[in-house]
């Protein structure tokens, strides 16, 4: 399959300035990161605070430009200023705080914002706004003011504002971090629909292991380097390595890990609750038979 985002030896430094505005120091945030995101995939990026995962995300649509190396979006170099709006239309970005992404005072006006910026015909805007709102299941709230909505609903409006542009990829920077459990579930369901039914590539930065477990691919970033890269099952079987870099594993995996430590012979690639429950159930059944 074709890759939609490609980074080649991406390196990024933050320059530190002193009070007079002179350069004093450089902080290396990302070192030699090379990765491909395939079109249509669902990738989760995990990492501890300060690991550089948000910085990496900001390179995917040219908000930040690499100090060294390059980033290609659909074959376009992000440092090509003349194509920046093509890049931003291809890769949309959703941020953590839904409140700080909504521009307009009415839901539908906000969803229309990107299309208005791109100079789309009014009738076409109307059609795409309605479509985007229906996709995230917020159509009936189109006349509401943002402050009347819950966190999860606001975040869905923010997502609608992005998908109205019809991007081929959406990068989400911890979209559920400020939401309650209900809002988190709503967003995860929406993200799944976008990926599965609409074929939109999703890159999701998160620190919730249970969310990462739902992706096709998990990339673990630590201190600006790619530590692990693989399917969720492969990644979460490295319980000790993950814990050593300050990350958790999904609760189901944690349970399996502890069972194994205490001497039970359990598989180490179980990552979701249902699988875990079924396995434990089968253990009990086996015990019954022995008696």
């Amino acid at each position: 399959m074709k890759e939609i985002i490609k980074t080649e030896k991406l390196t990024f430094d933050y320059t530190v300035y002193d009070e007079n505005g002179d350069e004093t120091d450089k902080n290396r945030v990302l070192t030699d990161i090379s990765l491909d995101i395939e079109e249509g995939s669902f990738t989760a990026v995990l990492g501890h605070n300060g690991s550089g995962k948000s910085t990496l995300a900001k390179h995917f649509n040219g908000i930040l430009l690499p100090t060294d190396g390059r980033v290609l979006v659909d074959g376009i170099d992000t440092s090509d200023e003349s194509r920046i709006y093509d890049i931003r239309q291809t890769v949309g970005m959703v941020f953590q705080n839904p409140d700080n992404q909504i521009v307009a005072t009415v839901v539908e006006e906000d969803v229309a914002f990107a299309l208005e910026n791109l100079g789309v015909e009014p009738k076409e805007i109307r059609r795409r706004v309605d479509e985007a709102l229906k996709t995230v299941d917020m159509y009936e709230y189109r006349k509401h003011a943002p402050h009347q909505l819950s966190g999860g609903q606001k975040q869905r409006v923010a997502i609608a504002g992005i998908i109205a542009m019809r991007p081929r990829c959406i990068v989400m920077d911890e979209p559920t971090a400020m939401l309650d459990p209900k809002g988190r579930k709503e967003i995860m369901a929406t993200v799944k629909t976008l990926n599965r039914d609409y074929g939109i590539t999703v890159v999701m930065i998160t620190h919730y292991m249970d969310e990462a477990a739902k992706a096709d691919r998990v990339i673990v970033i630590d201190k600006g380097n790619i530590l692990l890269d693989g399917t969720p099952k492969q990644i979460f079987s490295n319980v000790e390595l993950l814990k050593s870099v300050g990350l958790d594993v999904p609760q189901a995996t944690e349970l399996m890990y502890e069972l194994k430590k205490s001497g039970l012979d359990v598989p180490d690639d179980i990552i979701d609750e249902n699988e875990c429950a079924e396995y434990i159930y089968s253990l009990f059944c086996a015990d019954d038979k022995e008696q």
Partner: peptide, 10 residues
């Protein structure tokens, strides 16, 4: 943050 989000929406 809003400025960043607006930039992302062209």
């Amino acid at each position: 943050e809003l400025a960043l989000a607006m930039e992302c929406r062209c």
